[in-house]
Amino acid sequence: MLIDIRDLYKIYNEGKESEVRALDGVSLQIDRGEFVAIVGQSGSGKSTMMNVLGCLDVPTYGEYYLDGNDINSLSDKQLARIRNREIGFIFQGYNLIQELDALENVTLPLIYRGVSVFDREDMAMEALAKVGMDSRARHRPSEMSGGQQQRVAIARAIATSPPIIMADEPTGALDSRTGKHVLEILRELYRGGTTILLITHDDGIAATAKRVVRLSDGKIVSDSQQEVEWE
């Protein structure tokens, strides 16, 4: 079991009138090598779910085991390590650092990982090549299109070869053609054995995943396997 959450709550303004239960008692198990889409309307708690699963946020209550480790018991430093080595993030808004060029952005996680100067540039170039962006290595984000920026962001996510990729609306800001390209890259990663978590509100996008978890008002309303046409 790679991801194992039990009875997870994320409550904002708890006890006040404005209390919001973004996650309201969620339990979910995901195995290594799965391709899971988490689907829901906006406000359903799917982004909160990804933030908690990705150790970007802490749950209010509940247990979370990642690869057998109890996340609640880990230190800040250990969490940083997990974000660096276990999980690769792809965000809707790309979240590239504007002052750095594509190569430097992709190199960043390798720097934090402590990869030597001699290896990390090669590794970063390799990751850029995988998403077809090696020719744009010296371009800044402002000099690239949305699709190109998202591909750089994917390169950054896969640079450390993490076992899990979490993508939050990765195609949300892209037109359908570049969106399809991004999904193709995700499928490619899945075929290589990476566990993919795809968060989306779009059922069409969710159709690309082999398992669909539907969220509504912070609760899981359905969890089903499905046939996919690309396999």
Binding site: R81, R83, F89, N95, L96, I97, Y112, T160
Partner: peptide, 16 residues
């Protein structure tokens, strides 16, 4: 702050 968030998300430790 956003940049710091990005850096933390990709594994920057607090000390870094």
């Amino acid at each position: 702050t956003r940049e710091i968030g990005i850096r933390k998300a990709i594994g920057a430790e607090r000390s870094s």
